[in-house]
Lab assay of single mutants.
Amino acid sequence: VTLFVALYDYEARTEDDLSFHKGEKFQILNSSEGDWWEARSLTTGETGYIPSNYVAPV
């Protein structure tokens, strides 16, 4: 499993987005949709879409 870490804070803009804080780690569930990836936060357990340019591989 490839994990990603948040480089910046992000505040959700829609109900499908996932808010997160810098340093939070994610498991990517689906990265085939372009710039927005479906991810699960390893901190909160919540699932939603995150901007791929806000995260980097651990």
Rank of each mutant, 00 (worst) to 15 (best):
L29S: 05
G34Y: 10
Q27P: 00
T43Y: 10
P57V: 08
V58T: 08
V5H: 05
L7G: 02
Y10I: 01
R13L: 12
V1C: 14
L7Q: 05
T47W: 09
E33G: 14
A56Q: 11
F4I: 03
E46C: 11
S32N: 11
L42K: 04
S31F: 15
F26E: 00
N53K: 13
L29G: 04
P57Q: 09
A56H: 09
I50F: 01
L42Q: 07
W36E: 04
T14W: 15
I28H: 01
I50E: 00
S31L: 10
Y10M: 03
S41I: 07
W37A: 02
I50G: 00
Y8T: 06
V5E: 08
D16I: 14
Y8W: 15
Y10W: 09
K22M: 08
N53I: 10
T44N: 06
S41F: 03
V5Y: 13
N53S: 14
S41N: 11
D16C: 14
S41E: 03
E33L: 14
E15Y: 10
F26W: 01
A6C: 02
E15V: 12
E24Q: 07
V5D: 02
R40N: 04
K25R: 13
V55D: 00
E15M: 12
S52Q: 07
T47V: 14
G45Q: 07
A6R: 00
S19Q: 05
I50P: 00
L42C: 10
G48C: 01
A12E: 03
F20V: 04
V58S: 07
E46T: 08
I28S: 02
F26Y: 01
D16K: 15
I28P: 03
L7I: 10
L18H: 02
E33A: 14
L3S: 06
T43D: 10
Y8M: 09
V1Q: 13
E24F: 04
A6G: 04
L29M: 09
G34N: 12
I50M: 02
H21K: 15
V55F: 09
S41P: 01
K22I: 09
T2W: 13
P51D: 05
V55Y: 01
Y49D: 03
S52H: 08
F26D: 00
G48P: 00
R13Y: 09
S32D: 11
Y54M: 10
N30I: 06
F26I: 05
G48F: 03
L18E: 01
S31G: 10
Y10S: 02
A39I: 03
K22L: 06
D17Y: 14
Y8H: 09
V5G: 03
S31N: 13
A6D: 00
E11W: 09
N53D: 10
T43G: 07
P57W: 06
T14V: 07
R13N: 09
S19L: 02
P57N: 05
E33Q: 14
W37K: 03
E11G: 05
A56G: 08
G23R: 03
S31T: 13
D17H: 15
S19G: 07
S31V: 11
Y49A: 05
D35R: 09
T14A: 13
G23V: 01
Q27K: 09
A39Y: 02
S52F: 08
S32A: 11
S31D: 14
L42Y: 07
Y8E: 07
W37F: 08
V1I: 13
E11F: 10
D35N: 11
D35W: 12
A12G: 11
T47M: 09
F20G: 00
L42P: 02
G45E: 05
R40V: 10
K25S: 06
G45P: 01
G34F: 12
L18T: 02
S41Q: 05
Y54A: 10
S41L: 07
E24G: 02
I50S: 00
W36V: 08
G48Q: 01
G23L: 03
H21Y: 14
T47G: 04
L7R: 04
I50A: 01
W36N: 05
W36K: 12
L18W: 04
L3Y: 13
E38L: 15
F4W: 15
N53C: 13
L42S: 04
E24S: 04
Y54H: 08
Y10K: 03
T44G: 03
A6V: 01
E15Q: 12
V58R: 04
G45W: 08
E46W: 09
D9Q: 05
Y54G: 05
L7A: 03
A12I: 02
E46N: 13
E46F: 12
L29T: 07
R40E: 06
S19M: 04
T47H: 08
S19W: 03
A39Q: 00
G34P: 14
Y10R: 04
G48N: 01
E33H: 15
T44C: 04
A12K: 09
L7K: 05
E24W: 09
Y49N: 08
A39H: 00
V5F: 10
Y49G: 04
N53F: 09
R13H: 11
A12Q: 06
F4D: 00
G45I: 02
G48A: 02
A39W: 01
S52W: 10
A39L: 01
V1K: 10
Y54R: 06
W36I: 08
E24P: 00
D35L: 14
K25W: 14
T47P: 02
L3F: 11
W37T: 03
F26Q: 00
H21C: 13
T14I: 06
G34E: 13
S41Y: 02
G23S: 04
T43N: 10
D35A: 12
E38F: 15
E33R: 15
K25A: 07
W37S: 02
D9I: 03
I50K: 00
A56W: 09
T43C: 12
L29I: 11
S52R: 13
P51M: 07
F20Y: 01
F20H: 01
Y49W: 14
E38I: 15
A12P: 05
D16E: 13
S32P: 10
E11R: 10
E24M: 06
E11S: 11
R40L: 12
F26G: 00
Y10H: 06
T44M: 02
S41A: 07
E11N: 11
R13K: 13
D35H: 12
E46L: 15
G45T: 04
T43S: 13
P57F: 07
Y8K: 08
E38N: 09
W37L: 08
L7T: 04
E15W: 10
Q27V: 15
T44W: 03
E24L: 02
L29E: 05
R40Q: 09
D9E: 06
E15C: 12
S19I: 02
Q27A: 10
D35K: 12
T2L: 13
W37R: 02
Y54V: 04
T47A: 08
L3E: 09
E33Y: 13
T44Q: 03
K25T: 13
T47I: 14
V55K: 01
E15A: 14
V1S: 13
V58Q: 07
E15H: 11
Y10Q: 01
Y54Q: 05
D16L: 14
S41G: 03
A6E: 00
L29N: 05
E11P: 05
E15D: 13
F20T: 03
K22N: 04
L18C: 02
V5W: 07
K25M: 15
A6F: 01
I28D: 00
N30K: 08
E46G: 09
G45Y: 07
E38D: 04
E11M: 12
I50R: 00
W36D: 03
W37E: 01
T47Y: 08
S41T: 04
Y10T: 01
Y8R: 09
W36T: 06
E46M: 14
D17G: 15
S52M: 09
W37H: 03
F20W: 01
N53H: 12
S19Y: 03
D9L: 03
P57I: 08
S41R: 15
G48I: 02
G34I: 13
T43R: 14
E38Q: 14
T2M: 13
S41W: 01
V5L: 06
F4G: 04
I50H: 00
R13P: 08
V55Q: 01
A6Y: 01
D17F: 15
P57G: 05
Y8V: 07
E46Q: 15
A12R: 08
Y8C: 10
T2R: 09
S52L: 05
W36M: 13
V55A: 04
T43V: 10
D35P: 10
I28V: 10
